[in-house]
Simulated scan of single mutants.
Amino acid sequence: MTPLRTPDTRAPRAARRTLLLPVLLYGTGLLLLAAAIALAVSIGEIRIPFTTTLAAIGNALGISDVPLDRIHESIVRDYRLSRALVAACCGAGLALCGAILQALLRNPLAEPYVLGISAGASTGAVAVMVLGLGGGAVSLSLGAFVGSLGAFAAVVALSSGAASRPNRIILAGVASSQLFNALTAWIVSTSASAEQVRGIMFWLLGNLGGVRWPEVQLALAVVAVAFVTCLACARALDAFTFGQDAAAALGIPVRGVRLLLFTVTALLTAAMVSMVGAIGFVGLVIPHAARLVVGPTHVRLLPTALLTGAIFMVLADLVSRLVVPGQSLPIGVVTALVGAPVFAIILYRARPPM
């Protein structure tokens, strides 16, 4: 008589564990992001009780109607909350772009500004600020966005199309950056006053002081569309890490996917830079930190980088407002001071054994 076999329950347990881990990871990430935003909104030169902050956020989101002090509610809703949300979107967008470009270009040092978009945005913003292009009808953000698109067009032209070889695109980005940086320096040195130079330097290092709710709506929409598009291409990105030939062998339309993703990253970077200026190290460091947590598979890497970048930028903006009493540092200074040592640690840990 054949003995009865005990049903194997290891496979269902493994499946539940596989499903539970991402839920716990991203749920924790969302809670940390919410806590970071609440912390950033409640702390500043004017101290507001945390309960008042939560009530003001609830009123702004339409989920509560608590009577509050008008000054406190205005500070939370019209200044701090919009600033924190734009910071989160900016960090998420730059981290997402960094993860995409590092896969497409197969270069661990690739970041959103490798295509010269930051340099083009700087030229557009400086042209509006100093030369007054547009006669007041063109805003600083619009000028920066147009300059970003001009830089991307220059990269496409220099590389003979956005689907060219990675090294050719990187070299085209370097050339475009040098060109637009030279144009910016020429405008500043020949036409800007001392006060304008100070404002330009502050903007070039990242400035969240002028963002309001229209920028929040735009940033949320752009990041959401870009994230869904990139996540749909996660399988293609996994294949691109092994080269174009491997991706083509798997049936992926290499040229079309590369052109789509380059365009998405360029537009996303242009939108972020036009709102807050050039903020470095986020798109370079955050994807590497996310890989240490979830590995290189892009269906997990992209949402992890998105959340990590958002949390990092919100906390960096909080530090930039508090580190010097009475004034706000450019947020790019904080991201560089934090990002450079973190990136050095990542490089040290990833070094080959002697």
Rank of each mutant, 00 (worst) to 15 (best):
V323F: 12
L237N: 09
W186Y: 15
G326S: 04
L81Q: 07
I37M: 11
A36I: 08
A144L: 05
T53N: 06
I57K: 02
G210I: 05
V197D: 00
V276E: 01
A14F: 08
L101H: 07
R255S: 14
I169M: 14
L54K: 11
R255T: 15
R47H: 13
I279E: 02
G161T: 10
P3W: 13
G326A: 08
A192C: 09
S320W: 08
C233Q: 15
P352M: 10
Q327H: 01
S193V: 07
A182G: 10
L204R: 11
S189K: 10
T269I: 06
A192S: 11
D245I: 12
A127M: 14
V338Y: 01
I46P: 00
G251P: 06
L268E: 01
L237C: 03
R80D: 08
N181L: 11
G339C: 08
P22L: 10
F343W: 12
T184M: 01
G326Y: 07
A226M: 07
A310T: 08
V216N: 05
E215R: 13
L301S: 09
G283W: 10
L315K: 09
L81Y: 03
F145M: 09
A157W: 10
L329E: 04
G136T: 11
S177T: 14
L104A: 06
L171H: 08
Q217P: 00
W213M: 04
R321D: 00
L104N: 06
L183S: 07
L260E: 02
A84F: 10
S191F: 13
P108L: 10
S164W: 04
V319L: 15
P214I: 13
A305D: 04
G295V: 12
R351S: 06
D238E: 02
C89F: 07
D65T: 13
M272S: 05
G44V: 12
G44A: 08
T28Y: 03
I63P: 00
A121H: 01
P214Q: 08
F312C: 02
I279R: 00
L347F: 09
L94S: 00
L347A: 04
I346Q: 04
V174W: 00
S139R: 11
E195K: 14
A271P: 06
L158R: 05
A103P: 03
I279H: 02
A154T: 15
G62L: 06
G283H: 09
G280W: 05
L115F: 07
C90H: 01
L292H: 12
S64Y: 03
A221P: 02
A234V: 06
